[in-house]
Design a protein around this nucleic acid. Structure first.
Lengths: 106, 106
DNA sequence: CTGTATCCAGATTGATACTG
DNA sequence: CAGTATCAATCTGGATACAG
C-alpha cells in the first residue's frame, strides 16, 4: 500500500518539471505552438520581445526534453517547422488555466 | 463587437503574468501554500533547495502582487505566517494540472 | 530563412556570515 | 525564527556580424 505523497515530495517532483519549463520564455513558446506547428520566424514574431539567441536556446532545450520536434526542409531559403509532441500538447490544460488566471486577475 | 483575441495578443497578456510568476521558485512557493498557511521556516523546508535570500525575495514579490499575505506576530522568537490570497488560490487549477503533467511525463 | 558567434552590460542567483 | 548584508558566479538581453 502506497502512502499518499506529501507536499514536499510533490514539490520535489515539480522541481524537475520546472527545471525544463521554468525558463523565462518556455511557457510562451509552448503556448504559441498549441494552435499548430510554426516556423522559426513565426515563433519569433509570436513571442513578443524574445530575441534570436534566446529563441534558439529555448527551442533546443524543449527539443532535448521531447516537448517539441524540429523538422527541417531542404528548401531555399531553409524552412524549419516546430511542433509539439504529445508530451508538449499535454500541457494544454495547464496553459489554458494559466491564461484564464491572467484574464481574471491581470 | 469584439474580435476574438489571437495567439500573439494572448501571449502578450500572459507575459505580464509570467513576469510575476515566472521566477525560478515562484510556482513552488505557491504550490506549497495551497494546503494552507505556512511560516517562513516551513516554506524554506518545503521548497527544497531554495535559500533564505531567494525565499525572502520571492515572498516579497508575491506579496507585492497580492498573491499572498504576510502576517507577523510579536512573539519571541518571531512568528511570520504566509498565506494565499484569493488571487493566489485561483492558481490552484493551473498547479494541479502542472503537477499531473509532471506525474505523467517525468 | 534559420540559425551561429561574439562582445558586453546588467540582472539574477547562490553561498555564507551576521543581526534582532 | 525571520530575516539582512555581501561577494562571486551565472544567466540574460541586445546589438551586431556572418554562414549555409
Amino acid at each position: 500500500m502506497e502512502a499518499k505523497k506529501n507536499t514536499v515530495e510533490k514539490i520535489c517532483e515539480m522541481q524537475t518539471a520546472l527545471d525544463i519549463l521554468g525558463g523565462k520564455w518556455t511557457f510562451l513558446i509552448i503556448y504559441a505552438l498549441l494552435d499548430g506547428k510554426k516556423r522559426f520566424k513565426e515563433l519569433e514574431r509570436a513571442v513578443t520581445g524574445i530575441n534570436t539567441r534566446m529563441l534558439v536556446k529555448e527551442l533546443k532545450n524543449l527539443e532535448d526534453h521531447q516537448i517539441l520536434t524540429r523538422t527541417a526542409f531542404a528548401t531555399v531559403p531553409p524552412t524549419v517547422e516546430y511542433s509539439l509532441t504529445d508530451k508538449g500538447r499535454d500541457l494544454e490544460a495547464t496553459m489554458k488555466y494559466l491564461y484564464k488566471w491572467t484574464k481574471d486577475w491581470m
